[in-house]
Structure formats: structure tokens, C-alpha cells
Design a protein around this nucleic acid. Structure first.
Lengths: 198, 198
DNA sequence: CTAAACTTTCAAAAATTACTGAAAATTCAA
DNA sequence: TTGAATTTTCAGTAATTTTTGAAAGTTTAG
């Protein structure tokens, strides 16, 4: 299967970017191809289109499966497996974020958690442990937030994103309301929220 | 300089994770060491502590500089350069996010933008182009939001994060208010925002 | 300017990772 | 069961990346 220049360009780009994304060229190209394809493709078609060996494609697809980034399907009267990328780009984004967290963040969090339990042997050690704790808390806060955002349904999430930094206006309103009506009072002194111009 | 077991563990972890983060072992370990160190270190100290060759450390530091992740300083009466990681973990997080966007996302965005200008040659091509556009718009929305969030000052950002998915409550309030008071009317039909339980 | 102190560059070696073709394993229709 | 179709594994090779030591380059005190 000959690739059109349009698709070719996309596929090659993903192959090259692969290294920066922590995946290899084969995997990047396979995914790009599946993403743009109008119908599911089987491993032979992929191998032929991209000029990789059949076994290389097999390994690449395994990798993509482990990332939950491909769907498997079958065609009537054909024993081969057909692969496709999920249609919903939001779903893809979520999967990607989730898997990255699982592989790239969670192991670090456990390490940091365990390291907190050890007893520092000198002042330098104590300092190091404090730094690790700061890192731990930041990661926890950010990933927790990410997690929360991922739980929102798409429509809400999109609304929130389009709101962008104007969300601070809502925060101000909220602070005022909860102050006046007697809801949960905010902790600490409250400065007016401001956006910092970069 | 002998590393304590505590710091050793942290340093080795960062070295190993390096591959998943798209940096190499040397760079990961150097950064981990600087992050935990109670004072700036010079290149020789780093090389000795980690058991890398001096030149390897030099290259690693260059890489970290290109990521804006280290600060340079000098000690009185010493010509050597001393390196340290910024104290503020939030600043580190921002730098990291910014650099990653620049290297990992921006090139893809330009490619997608350019590819939109080409004329698809057949229905498959047309489909591919549509998919690329979906991807483009999603990335644009998400990175734009990220950008906005990065502009907030830390206190506000932290408040927002701790609010988590409860932020939807504010969205509801806002919708009600703007409807009643006659603020900027929301575009399209408005369904009550709901969080989807995963 | 010179020499000592320090840093960077670079070619080559070492280590790691990607890729292939052939063979083994699996699956399923008959 | 058998055997044809298909997928996976794996040992060897190729390509890439990392690391090093030596040499070259830079900076600055005197």
C-alpha cells in the first residue's frame, strides 16, 4: 500500500518525534498510520506500508497494546487481526496521560514515599530528605488534580479549558460567597487572586 | 564524596527512570544529586560522587543547562563553576513543562498546521486530514489551557488544584449567574454540568 | 604575555537498543 | 487430528547512543 504524501509526512514526523516521546521509530510510525487510516489494518498491511519487517511490526503492535492505544478487530472470513486507533481523540489523550502517569510518575512516588521513612544520618541527609518531601508533595498535588480533571466528562472539561485563566474570577466569587454566606471558610489570609503577566 | 544510602537511592532511581523520561542515566543522576545537595557542587565533585568521567559530566551539565534546570554560581577565590538546582519546586515544574512543550509538542503542532494546508488527493486522504485536524485542535486546547494555568501565581494555582473536580460547582454557579444577571451568554444549549463517575 | 587551572571537544570504545529472517508456536477450518 | 494460515519468539546483526581519555581550548592571576 503506497502512502499518500500527506500521510507519509505525518507518519515520518511521528517516527522522528518518537525518540523525544520515549517510543521508538517503528512504534511511532505504526501509531501514526493507524491514527490516520480510514479502516482497520492488519499487520502485513502495516509492514508493507511502512517498509518494516513483519516481526518488527509484531513487536511494535505489542508495545502499543501495552499502552492501550490500539483496538483489535476481525473481518468476516479473515483470520488475521486488524488494528485501529480509537476514534475519540479525547479518549486517546486520557489513555496516554494515564499510562504515562503509571509508568513515569508512580514508581517515583513510591520511591519518594519509602525514602521518607528512612532516618537521615546527618544534616545534609536531612536536607536531602526535606527536598524529596517537597518533590513528593508537589507531584502528589499535580497528579491528583490531573486525575480529578480526567474524571470530568468531556463537555465540562472542555468548558473549563476554554475558560482558561479566567477561572480565577470564579475563585474570587467563590471566596466572596463563602465568606458572606458562611460556607467553609478559606484557610489563611486571602489576597486578591491575580494573574501574573509573563 | 561518598553518598549516603538515602541520597544514593534517590540518585540511582533518577538514573534508571531517565530512560522513561527521555534523558540519559548521567543526566538523571546529576540532576538528582544537585536537587538534593545542600550546597552548589562543581563538576569534579559531581564526577567523583557519581563515578562518571569528567567529560561525561560536562556533557550532562550542558544538557541540563539547555533545559534551564540548573543554576550556575561561583565561590569566592575559586575559578570553578558551581551548579545547583533551583530551590523552588514549582519553578522546576514550570520549567520542565515549558521545555517539554517546546521540544515535544510545538514541532508537532507546526507539522499539523502545515499539513492542513495541503489538498487531499482522495477520500482516504481527506479522512486522514480530518483526523489530523482533530488532533491539532485537541493539542491546541490542552496546551493553551496549560499555558493559562502556568500564568497563575502559585497561591492561586494551588488553591485551584486543591479544589480539584469540585471546580465544576463553580462552573454551575457561573452559568446560573451569567444567565440571570445577563453577563456574556454561554454559547449553545446548556446542559447541567455533571461529573462522570469513572 | 605566560602558565596554571579549569572546561570542552572529539574520536574511538563500550553499551544499549532496534531490526531482521528463520524457525517455533499457535490457531482454526476441515 | 492434520495442515495451512498467521503470529510470535529469538539469536544474530545493524544502528544508535553513551561514555571515556586524551588533546585542544579558554580563562585569569601574576
Amino acid at each position: 500500500m503506497q502512502l499518500s504524501p500527506l500521510i507519509q509526512r505525518f507518519v515520518l514526523h511521528f517516527g522522528e518525534m518518537g525518540s523525544r516521546w520515549g517510543i521508538n521509530r517503528t512504534v511511532g510510525q505504526i501509531y501514526a498510520l493507524l491514527f490516520t487510516a480510514a479502516r482497520p489494518l492488519n499487520a502485513d498491511e502495516i509492514a508493507e506500508s511502512l517498509g518494516f519487517s513483519r516481526s518488527n511490526v509484531s513487536i511494535g503492535l505489542k508495545e502499543l497494546e501495552s499502552w492501550n492505544l490500539v483496538r483489535l478487530s476481525h473481518q468476516p472470513g479473515d483470520r488475521r487481526e486488524y488494528f485501529s486507533a480509537p476514534d475519540d481523540v479525547w479518549a486517546i489523550f486520557r489513555t496516554l496521560a494515564e499510562e504515562r502517569r503509571r509508568r513515569e510518575i508512580d514508581p517515583t512516588l513510591s520511591m519518594l514515599r519509602e525514602v521518607q521513612l528512612e532516618t537521615p544520618s546527618d544534616p545534609d541527609d536531612k536536607h536531602a530528605q526535606r527536598r524529596m518531601q517537597e518533590m513528593y508533595e508537589l507531584i502528589l498535588l499535580v497528579t491528583g488534580w490531573f486525575n480529578d480533571m480526567q474524571k470530568l466528562d468531556i463537555a465540562t472539561l472542555e468548558k473549563l479549558m476554554r475558560l482558561g485563566s479566567r477561572v480565577t474570577k470564579l475563585l474570587e466569587v467563590k471566596d466572596k460567597l463563602s465568606g458572606a454566606v458562611g460556607g467553609k471558610p478559606a484557610e489563611g489570609k486571602r489576597k486578591p487572586a491575580r494573574t501574573k503577566k509573563e
